[in-house]
């Protein structure tokens, strides 16, 4: 063997100890998570990773030992994933997300969100005036299921009592909250985003039809002189809820833009670039829908005074405005 004098063998003998150390660390991190590494191990990890990476480059140049090269490829790959990954835990990620990332991404995509809001408002206006013009359109716009007892055939008194309904007990208001949350709104919101992948056409459709429904609903009450009451019923949670839906629509349009107008990037890179910001605000919007759900489920049934209802509506609008304007500015400047 002496006369063979293989460089690759010598090289391997010198470096193998490093590889074994890294292997042990990475295996531990994979099994029990990065948090299980001690402070000392955590500082050694990047150094060992870089040493192994350099071993890999050398091995590719001098060695023909396929097993060794494949081992190094896999070890370097596994270590790479551990070294270059989000070090924050799930809770810390969530905290940072609400404080910084969500409002920042919102500001990045504000024009997309404005477009989305415009389409929703257009839908509301169309639904409102078309329904006022001819009440028969109401059922066509709303569909049978969503309208419930609120039909043009119902008396004004019936409609009014539905707006100030209190005879549900506390547990059942929570049912309303949960089912509303899990079934309809979050679904619509996530969908409005994900369907942006279809060049934004379904997003447009979803926003516009939801606007029309809202318009038709308020038109019915307007025709009975219940305008003030119906907005007072809708807006305390509606501000947050509609805002969330509009945000998701904006996210959908951002995706569509990335797909249709990639600019100087390749289409794939542009989609990925837009997609990350867009996904962030959708997660944030789902969080907003939770808040809307709590307001709707708990608050609406217990507070019946119209001025208080409006105060809550205005308060939530101001709160969101300030949140998106101020939060996360400091670290934006730093970056």
């Amino acid at each position: 063997m002496g006369e063979l004098n293989l460089k690759s063998l010598k090289f391997r003998r010198e470096r193998q100890a490093t590889w074994n150390k890294l292997d042990r660390l990475v295996t531990k991190a994979e099994r029990q998570g990065l948090a299980s590494l001690s402070a000392e191990e955590l500082t050694r990890l990047p150094a060992l990773y870089r040493a192994t990476l350099s071993s890999l480059s050398v091995a590719r140049a001098v060695s023909l030992d396929r097993n060794a090269i494949e081992y190094l490829e896999s070890l370097a790959g596994r270590a790479y994933v551990q070294v270059y990954s989000t070090k924050r835990g799930v809770l810390a990620t969530a905290r940072r997300f609400l404080r910084v990332s969500f409002p920042q991404s919102f500001r990045v995509l504000k024009w997309h969100i404005a477009l989305s809001a415009a389409i929703l408002l257009l839908g509301v206006a169309a639904g409102f005036f078309l329904t006022l013009d001819d009440m028969d359109r109401y059922t066509a716009f709303m569909g049978e299921g969503l309208a419930g007892d609120r039909t043009p055939e119902a008396s004004t008194e019936q409609l009014r009592s539905l707006l100030y309904d209190t005879d549900e007990d506390a547990a059942d208001t929570l049912v309303g909250f949960a089912s509303f949350l899990a079934t309809h709104n979050s679904r619509v919101a996530i969908m409005a985003f994900a369907l942006g992948f279809a060049a934004g056409v379904p997003t447009f459709y979803l926003l516009f039809t939801n606007g029309i429904m809202l318009g038709a609903f308020t038109a019915l009450h307007h025709s009975r002189g219940l305008s003030v009451d119906v907005w007072g019923w809708l807006l305390p949670h509606g501000i947050t809820e509609l805002f969330a839906i509009v945000i998701c629509g904006g996210a959908g349009f951002a995706l569509a833009q990335g797909l249709i107008f990639p600019g100087r990037r390749t289409r794939l890179a542009s989609l990925a670039h837009r997609g990350r910001d867009a996904a962030k605000i959708v997660i944030g919007a789902v969080f907003m829908l939770f808040i809307a759900g709590i307001i709707e489920g708990v608050f609406r049934q217990t507070v019946l005074l119209v001025p208080v209802r409006y105060a809550v509506a205005i308060g939530s609008a101001v709160a969101w405005f300030l949140y998106f304007r101020i939060m996360g500015r400091a670290s934006e400047d730093a970056a």
């Binding site: 270059y84 994900a194 990350r276 996904a279």
Partner: peptide, 19 residues
Amino acid sequence: GGVLSAEAIFARNLTRQVE
């Protein structure tokens, strides 16, 4: 080849609803 960010993880999993 960059860091696998939380945003990327959000994005790839939210679309599961549609997919």
